[in-house]
Design a protein around this nucleic acid. Structure first.
Lengths: 353, 353
DNA sequence: CCTGGAAACGTAACCGATAACGATTGCAGT
DNA sequence: ACTGCAATCGTTATCGGTTACGTTTCCAGG
């Protein structure tokens, strides 16, 4: 509770123990060259005064700080999952974590934030950094691992195999017999969005199904962006029998829109997402999706960074994590003869909240 | 991508611009006493070299850093929601955020982590800190705001009105006609857990319903802890007709257990939670719960801290945020004549995944 | 031309800690 | 007693940036 108390510095301890700051430093860091009795004296003074070394001062002088950094622009469910993985990888590792997030001073985020944040931290404070979804490559004195970097990035990174995942998703729909498959894309500036769209195109091409530009909606990974696009797709004279959304958040919106329009899922429309966020398991019906384990992304990135810092990394510097199809209730074969009777449909699908 | 590049320091800029570091500092901080032409020279050098001031070095010398800190022990859904609120409150405020999380070096967390982390940061790096669920009070040179502090804490804090919320929840059940109401408690060391249990007791006492110790299970807020407790409660010869769980995570487990036992919700059993996490809206039926807006907790804590730092805080130093009952499908009046026919129940509640 | 004073800029102390280095002490070996 | 080597500990430069203070420059006013 107390505020305004001047912080205890190393020289306070030194004075109390009757030694120099150098000796205190040696005791604190367990270095060689301090007698047992002096050590005890210093320890006692530290205890008595409640001294704790300043992270800032230490990092300024030292090369290793045993603190890893993570810089991110915004803070969303995605980021939270990643963080859980990072923390798990860091448990009992001796590394602490510092997350740096900016307050978005310029309204929309100005390009180059990754580099600016990184420079401010990486100067001395951290031994290495994880950067979440950077737009471009960055330079740093210490190792950096990117999660979901830009498409042409050459930095060490961890990415989900978005291309394979998206291909599998669309092939799943094709295998069920769908031929008219809509797509709601993500923010085009991100590599993940590009890969998922490319997977959609390749799967269709592989099955000899022509690509209709009219069946592709341009979203931005934001759930809200998906609703109008889904509405547009489903109100066409020749609507798709299935929709693949580039993220679960957007797919859940598609489910809502379908319900609003009186369409049953998966009876009238199959829906498939990407990400496998926790919420996708709880809807009725459950959302078929592609699991990319954001938790795993964070976990692997932290593991890699740890090793890069200690210098014992053997594996590849660009990791592609596998994705897997999670089939739940939102996908099924299309109706051979498509009819639409909302009241009938509701009866089949069971009541909803 | 590039690694190992020596960071650009202020003296590099000074050399390039042909001035002293003092002048560069003045330009960077917009201080008085630099001619327009010199300013231009320095600016150009900064641009050319890509200089960014070191957070560490700056904070060591300066009192204000425009960085707020948040220290937390673990990283869960709760923390993530709080963080979203904090970030929102900090948008365009000019304050950046640093989150410090430890790597749990000692297995289970050692008491006093709040104080240790705080001291390390608060020495110089941050202008103030938010501490999430501290066990005890802390001392700091700079302002500190606690979220969900210990019961007898006197530090500035933001807490949800757990007592009123829990009372309302149980009164809701009583109003529906329930008299045998089970309770699954949270970790007793946390103030929130104590308040919620107290609310349970007061509501029952207020209605003249005797408290049965056998209807109280001792959980720890962890979802996994709730399943065996729920099972135990429901297998009693005289099972409760409703269960109030001290957190949504635990309440969701109760729903699972009920399903396993062939009980329908809310037909055979009413379930009510606390927190209103996003998942609670998506279950079938939706979970009736008490909303405490963890987002709001974070938002208010950040707003308060900001003002404490700038010295213009007028309001009370201990904020109690209101809670509200969110009624969804998991609560209903008890069966007057309780019967248990799983197949019959399934028919009523609709099919589940 | 001289002076005064403000503007412009450099010098150096300083923040808290670390580490290279030097200085002091203790003790064994001769 | 003297040398030599460890063990122990203090002194000081240093990290990158900030700021009090001192110095130089420049121009207006006399």
């Amino acid at each position: 509770m107390a505020e305004g108390r001047a912080p205890i510095t190393m020289s306070d301890v030194a004075r109390a123990a009757g030694v120099s700051t150098a000796t205190v430093s040696r005791v604190v860091n367990g270095h060689y060259g301090v007698s047992a009795s002096t050590t005890a004296q210093v320890r006692s003074a530290i205890e008595r005064l409640g001294y704790e070394s300043s992270l800032v001062a230490t990092s300024l002088r030292r090369s290793r700080t045993n603190v890893l950094g993570l810089v991110t622009h915004s803070f969303q469910s995605y980021t939270a999952e990643v963080l859980k993985g990072v923390m798990q990888a860091l448990r009992r590792s001796g590394f602490d974590l510092i997350i740096y997030a900016n307050s978005d001073l310029y309204g929309t985020y100005s390009e180059g934030w990754e580099q600016r944040h990184l420079t401010r931290l990486s100067g001395t404070l951290t031994d290495g950094c994880i950067v979440v979804t950077p737009w471009g490559d960055v330079q740093s004195r210490t190792p950096v691992v990117a999660i979901d970097p830009a498409r042409d990035s050459t930095m060490p990174s961890v990415t989900a195999d978005n291309l394979a995942g998206a291909t599998t998703a669309v092939e799943h729909l094709l295998g069920l017999g769908h031929r008219r498959i809509g797509f709601i894309a993500g923010r085009s500036s991100l590599a993940a969005a590009w890969s998922r769209e490319e997977g959609y195109r390749r799967a269709l091409a592989g099955a000899g199904v022509p690509i209709e530009p009219g069946l592709i909606g341009r979203g931005d990974f934001n759930p809200e962006s998906a609703a109008p696009l889904a509405r547009e797709l489903l109100k066409r004279p020749d609507p798709p029998t299935a929709i693949f959304a580039a993220s679960d958040g957007m797919a859940l919106e598609v489910l809502e829109v379908a319900k609003d329009l009186g369409l049953t899922v998966p009876g009238d429309l199959s829906v498939i997402g990407f990400d496998n966020i926790p919420e996708s398991e709880l809807t009725e019906p459950g959302l078929t999706t592609v699991d990319q384990s954001m938790y795993q992304l964070g976990y692997e990135a932290a593991r890699m960074l740890k090793s890069l810092v200690t210098g014992d990394w053997e594996g590849p510097r660009q990791i592609l994590l596998p994705t897997s199809l999670v089939v739940r209730g939102s996908t099924a074969p299309p109706r051979t003869h498509r009819t639409r009777h909302p009241h009938l449909a509701a009866q089949i699908s069971g009541h909803t909240r």
